[in-house]
Design a protein around this nucleic acid. Structure first.
Length: 707
DNA sequence: GAGCACTGC
């Protein structure tokens, strides 16, 4: 089945009459909006699309960027009456996308945001009783499914950006499929499920949803020329640098595949050849000439930015000046904004970015993309069961996504810093997140939805059994599980844990805190640990940072130190200047306060008493010992550390306040694998407390250690 | 004495 803009035909592919669109009003803005809406390629296929979707339980929709599928399909369904008996949900992997799409669609429907069209993301629910089209993050819908696994509110769920395969979308695939089946069995309102994806590779989606029909939508992507290097590149950083200046100096319109240029850097020239496959772009006069370079991380990006600026100073006068802008997630927001601002007249922008520019941030005016073919990503090693962050090759889909960033307003050019043969050897798809990370939260959520058997749950891409079993074992240690008639279910504790938007071990920490009379303190600590670090460490000002931070440091470890910082911040009323003086990230600090309020609410809802230990830090440390006992390390006779469970050699991370100390026994909140295996966020504990917390566990560990 | 891609509840 193929739907294209030209072939669809206007109204009424089905027997029923498609309701007309509302008449344009007099407002020029609205008129423009309406015109724009009608000029989308998807518009001419509206009648046929609606007729198809009306009769289908499942459909997979492929639309290139610019097809308008995300804003239009929900409206078509609404106009077709699909939402009369239930809301239309549209999920997004990111908050900003959910919010801006809802804003856009409510504008197009000429309604106030939060009425007919609304959105729900963490900390923000802009919906009402009137809401029929609801945009929400995939994580949010998953959370809703915990209290109603049949998703009774909804008549239709649209899973958008499905090709990104976030862990939440992947779990939702199974949740909506189950809900759909159950609702049919119970004779309830049918649930329509529409999967939307940007990539053509959709067999997996279609197969999973019972052979759902695939509908193709035409997009508005401009042609992009692709060049591969003639030789494999040993040093992708070097190659990227050279490519940027080659692009910058080459005059446009040179159509030859060879781009050998007389440059001061000639000995370093990277030579490219044009790929034979994609259509070559017409040489239109481009509106903008900016360059987007994909690298792997902050350090690389900062170094390359500096080198580019240095070289740009010495370019011949015939060359336009260059504005070099780094881009990565931890860059302060104000600096991120600079990539959206126009460069001074005559300047060419060169944006050096992580994969944040692949999906999360869309920059206009990009003519050239330089793709190193590398990415820093989490990998899961099934043998050791460890997660490692490592630089690796991108997948083909990722490479295409990067390429697509060059053709958004006009024809573009993508330079791939690898050969076509190398490209052919890339993995077809990025390994979905669900096969790469810790599954404890996912399994807890599924059990909270009363999934009969988590080991055989119908995942689209199954995680390895070892992986699932490791998560089950972890939850068992936390006291979340019980075995009922050979079936895994949640204990009352497990059920409470699932209510918190936290890693299970942190949820358990909060639940235990009432026993130790330190809930106030633990709420703060857990909130601090569940957002990005509030500590800001500019390497150039290390001595300053150290002397300023001294006053907060506790010999009891990082948790207590963080608690001290938060308290001071609160006592001073969340003062921004104080944050600056003390190298504290104020944005993250405000987020901590927001998370803390949410967690506190959840505690109150389950009638937990919220008390403070009033300066008694030993209770706080005991509480941490009782919930994090499986993340323990002990000092060995040779002065090194080893974890208690697997005897893995570990070291105290230099960022810890305990770096120069040698406590006999610590609990840690995370392990970081780089050159060494480092423990981060440590707390000094008594070995006795640990045995007290989990006597069986430690007896078993001791036994295996002796064998 | 070292380094943290990106999301999200």
């Amino acid at each position: 089945m193929l739907l294209t803009a030209g072939g669809g035909g206007g109204a009424g592919g089905g027997r029923r009459q498609t309701p007309p669109l509302a008449q344009p009003s007099a407002s020029p803005y609205r008129e423009a909006l309406e015109l724009q809406r009608r000029s989308l390629p998807i518009f001419r296929a509206r009648g046929q699309l609606l007729a198809q979707l009306r009769n289908l339980d499942n459909a997979v929709l492929i639309g290139e960027t610019g097809s308008g599928k995300t804003t239009q399909i929900p409206q078509y369904l609404y106009e077709g009456g699909i939402s009369r008996q239930g809301i239309i949900a549209v999920t997004q992997p990111r908050r900003v996308a959910a919010i801006s799409l809802a804003t856009r669609v409510s504008d197009e429907k000429r309604t106030e945001l939060g009425k007919l069209v609304g959105y729900t993301v963490r900390f923000e629910d802009v919906t009402s009783e009137d809401t029929r089209i609801k945009f929400l993050t995939d994580g949010m819908l998953l959370r809703e499914a915990i209290s109603d696994s049949l998703l009774r509110k909804y008549s239709c769920v649209i899973l958008d950006e499905a090709h990104e395969r976030t862990i939440h979308t992947d779990v939702l695939f199974g949740v909506v499929k189950t809900a759909q089946k159950r609702r049919k069995e119970l004779g309830k309102l049918p649930l329509k499920v529409i999967v939307m994806s940007a990539t053509m590779d959709v067999d997996l989606f279609s197969q999973y949803f019972n052979g759902a029909p695939v509908l193709y939508l035409e997009g508005r992507q401009h042609p992009i020329q692709i060049f591969y290097t003639k030789q494999p590149q040993q040093d992708y950083l070097h190659a990227a640098l050279v490519s940027v200046f080659q692009i910058h100096q080459v005059s446009l319109g040179s159509d030859s595949g060879d781009q050998q240029v007389p440059l001061p850097l000639r000995q370093l020239t990277v030579s490219f050849q044009l790929s034979e496959t994609p259509a070559s772009g017409q040489q239109e006069a481009p509106s903008s000439q900016d360059i987007l370079v994909f690298l792997t991380g902050q350090e690389e990006i900062e170094a390359m930015s500096k080198t580019c600026r240095d070289i740009a100073k010495h370019l011949p006068d015939s060359c336009p000046p260059m504005l070099v802008l780094p881009l990565y997630a931890s860059l302060p927001y104000s600096q991120q904004l600079r990539v959206f601002q126009g460069a001074p007249k005559g300047y060419r922008k060169v944006i050096i970015s992580t994969n944040i520019a692949e999906t999360s941030i869309t920059i206009t005016g990009i003519k050239y993309v330089v793709d190193t073919g590398m990415v820093k990503a989490k990998k899961y090693n099934p043998d050791s069961g460890l997660e490692v962050l490592a630089v690796q090759r991108v997948s083909k889909t990722q490479a295409w996504q990067r390429t697509g960033r060059a053709g958004r307003e006009d024809s573009g050019i993508c330079y791939r810093l690898y050969t076509e043969d190398e490209f052919e050897k890339f993995e077809k798809m990025t390994v979905p997140e669900i096969q790469r990370c810790n599954l404890a939260s996912v399994i807890l959520q599924l059990l909270a939805m009363r999934v009969p058997n988590v080991l055989t749950f119908d995942f689209m891409s199954k995680p390895s059994p070892d992986h699932v079993e490791a998560a089950v074992a972890h939850l068992d240690l936390l006291g979340a599980l019980e075995h009922e008639d050979g079936r895994l279910t949640l204990t009352p504790t497990g059920r409470k844990m699932a209510a918190f938007p936290l890693e299970p071990k942190f949820a358990k920490t909060i639940l235990l805190s009432s026993k130790f009379h330190c809930t106030e303190e633990i709420l703060t600590i857990v909130s601090l640990l569940s957002v990005d670090s509030v500590l800001y460490n500019p390497p150039a000002r290390r001595d300053e940072v150290q002397s300023v931070r001294k006053k907060f440091i506790s010999s009891e470890g990082d948790h207590i130190t963080l608690l001290n910082i938060y308290r001071t911040f609160k006592n001073l009323g969340g003062n921004k200047d104080w944050c600056k003086e003390n190298f504290v990230n104020s944005k993250n600090m405000l987020l901590v306060a927001e998370v803390r309020a949410q967690l506190r609410d959840i505690c109150l809802k389950m009638s937990m008493p919220i008390v403070s230990s009033r300066g008694d830090m030993e209770s706080v440390r005991r509480c941490l010992a009782h919930s994090l006992f499986m993340s323990t390390a002990e000092l060995q006779t040779d002065g090194t550390y080893a974890t208690t469970d697997t005897h893995q050699p570990v070291a105290i991370h230099p960022s810890s306040v305990l770096f120069h100390c040698k406590p006999a026994c610590v609990v840690y909140t995370s392990l970081l694998y780089t050159n060494k295996c480092y423990m981060r966020d440590l707390c000094v504990v008594d070995a006795e407390w640990l045995y007290e917390a989990a006597p069986d566990y430690f007896r078993k560990k001791l036994r295996t250690a002796r064998n």
